[in-house]
Nucleic acid binder design. Structure first.
Length: 490
RNA sequence: CGGGGUGUAGCGUAGCCCGGUAUCGCGCCACAUUUGGGAUGUGGAGGUCGUCAGUUCGAAUCUGGCCACCCCGACCA
């Protein structure tokens, strides 16, 4: 059948690509490295956005919007920032096209911009340039702003959702009077991300801080949440940066403190992107298609009628429509698929591929017995139950599925976290098992770099609240006081 | 960006080596019978063979450029 996808065991990467396409999440576009997010994929993103946006607002943030274009000169103001992004910027040089003598459309050479514009790869520079005019006094602080936007990073090698040239995200940019307050904000938003990813996406994460090598360009500290996917690779699911006074200095954003002292403000920035869609797929889905946690499923329950003739369908409608209403009163999103153009078996397979958590089938047999058949997507199990009081059962079932997905992912993360003491063990675990490897490291960038070159593994993070213990670096044998998490990452 | 591979109907493919206007399956349309796990039959529609150029009487097939995707590498807040 054309709707089948490869298996994870056979070729994880191929399975992922086929799944994204066949579950109708996204497809490749005519533009290199850019994807079209299809309605089903976009509906999931909208659910993510809605949940995150509420969490941001509940923690005191407001939304705003800044320009897509950034004057080139802005990038030269923060040295490490430009270093980090220069290699992957799309640049606008002209503002007009014209018809050439041969009839083709060409860029009008007379329409060259005085100063080139950069399509934002991230908005720190344009936002901090704007903040200069907004902040004068400690009374203007803290400034807690988020933006939902698209950004462009000209990546050499792209993958649907995980790394695309253009992607959708949110970026929070806050300004504070003290370093302590900015650090607190950085940590708070990391907690918000972890809360979201674990409770909505059902993906357990490790909260940690990045090493100097992996730090955001222009940050003093980069905090992150790292997820472990089914294939034993790690994925950075969100980052929160403590930017110190770097951007305030670069864009001259000063404020007068309560004590009358003039000082630069302290900054944070934090973001998650459509990459989370990739994490969602790679965490829960199986060889039959997408598996969605109920909290993010655009359709939580689908009802499929099984009937003969228009009259048969009408009889089922009499039972199903009130049931649909009841479920909706519990806040459940329900689709009654009464299309006569597809057969029940086709619909079963289709909704399985698209990851609808619960399916209810109602046929004449059920009408006679006062029952329905309930199937859950996560376990693929089915049972026939009385329609009486089914609403509360479904509410419970959705909650069970959400929990079950999290527990499975948590078990995997635990099983795929290995403590090693020696280099040989380290290499062996990476080669045979994958996952997170907790090992001692001497704390130097040189060692980190060497390990990356030798094994492809990077330090995903130094976990927060890490146990302090004496040990020896797996590569150099130098003293170490804590373990860090290594992994092969996306 | 370097190495390798692929591109033929909406999807998956045969044909390419050895040049003669394209095969099969799924899907699509019509009708009938069907409907508790991707129905069956009959009939039908759908193709500038990725694209541009070259060789040739003639190109899906040979040659070159370009584009896109996949795999490996480099890069990746």
């Amino acid at each position: 059948m054309s709707k089948e996808i490869g298996t994870r065991k056979e070729d994880f990467s191929k399975w992922y690509n086929e799944l994204v396409l066949k579950a109708d999440l996204a497809e490749h576009s005519a533009v290199r490295g850019c994807m079209v997010i299809k309605p089903h994929g976009y509906a999931i993103w909208e659910k993510m956005q809605a949940a995150l946006d509420k969490m941001f607002k509940d923690t005191g943030h407001v939304n705003a919007y800044f320009p897509l274009f950034i004057p080139k000169s802005f990038f030269s103001k923060e040295a490490s920032h430009v270093d980090g992004f220069a290699k992957e910027c799309a640049v606008v040089t002209h503002y007009r096209l014209k018809t050439a003598p041969d009839g083709s459309i060409v860029v009008d050479p007379d329409a060259k911009l005085e100063e080139e514009l950069i399509v934002r790869p991230t908005s720190e520079t344009i936002i901090w340039n704007t903040y200069r005019g907004w902040i004068q006094s400690y009374r203007d602080l803290p400034l807690l702003i988020n933006q939902w936007a698209n950004v462009v990073r000209w990546e050499m090698r792209t993958r649907l959702f995980l790394r695309t040239a253009e992607f959708l995200w949110q970026e929070g940019h806050t300004a504070h009077a003290t370093a302590e307050e900015a650090v607190e904000e950085t940590r708070k938003m990391l907690d918000v991300y972890a809360d979201f990813v674990e409770n909505f996406m059902a993906v357990p994460v490790v909260k940690g801080v990045k090493t100097v090598n992996e730090r955001f360009a222009g940050a003093l500290d980069t905090y992150c949440i790292e997820a472990m996917l089914q294939d034993g690779k790690a994925l950075q699911a969100g980052t929160s940066h403590f930017l110190g006074q770097n951007f305030a200095k670069a864009f001259d954003v000063k404020f007068t403190s309560k004590e009358g002292k003039l000082d630069y403000v302290w900054a944070t920035s934090w973001g998650v992107s459509t990459r989370l869609m990739g994490a969602l797929v790679m965490s829960h889905s199986d060889d039959n298609g997408l598996v969605l946690p109920p909290k993010l499923a655009p359709i939580q329950v689908v009802i499929v009628p099984i009937y003969k003739g228009e009259e048969g369908l009408n009889k089922i409608r009499e039972v199903v429509l009130p049931l649909k209403k009841k479920l909706e009163n519990f806040g459940i999103s329900v689709k009654f698929d009464d299309r006569d153009t597809q057969r029940p078996g086709w619909k079963f397979a289709e909704y399985e591929m698209k990851g609808v958590p619960v399916r209810i089938a109602v046929g004449e047999r059920d009408l006679a017995n006062g029952t329905v058949e309930i199937a859950r997507r996560d376990t693929l199990s089915k049972e026939t139950v009385s329609i009486e009081g089914i609403e509360t059962k479904i509410v419970q079932l959705l909650s069970d599925i959400q929990d079950n997905l999290y527990q499975i992912a948590l078990k995997r993360k635990t099983e795929l976290t290995t403590r090693v003491e020696t280099w040989d063990e380290f290499v062996k675990v990476l080669e045979t098992k994958g996952g997170f490897v907790a090992a001692h490291w001497d704390g130097t960038s040189e060692t980190e770099q060497k390990i990356k070159e030798m094994t492809k593994a990077t330090i995903r993070c130094i976990p927060l609240n890490n146990v302090q213990e004496e040990g020896k670096c797996i590569l150099t044998g130098a003293r170490s006081k804590e373990r860090v998490l290594f992994a092969i990452a996306y």
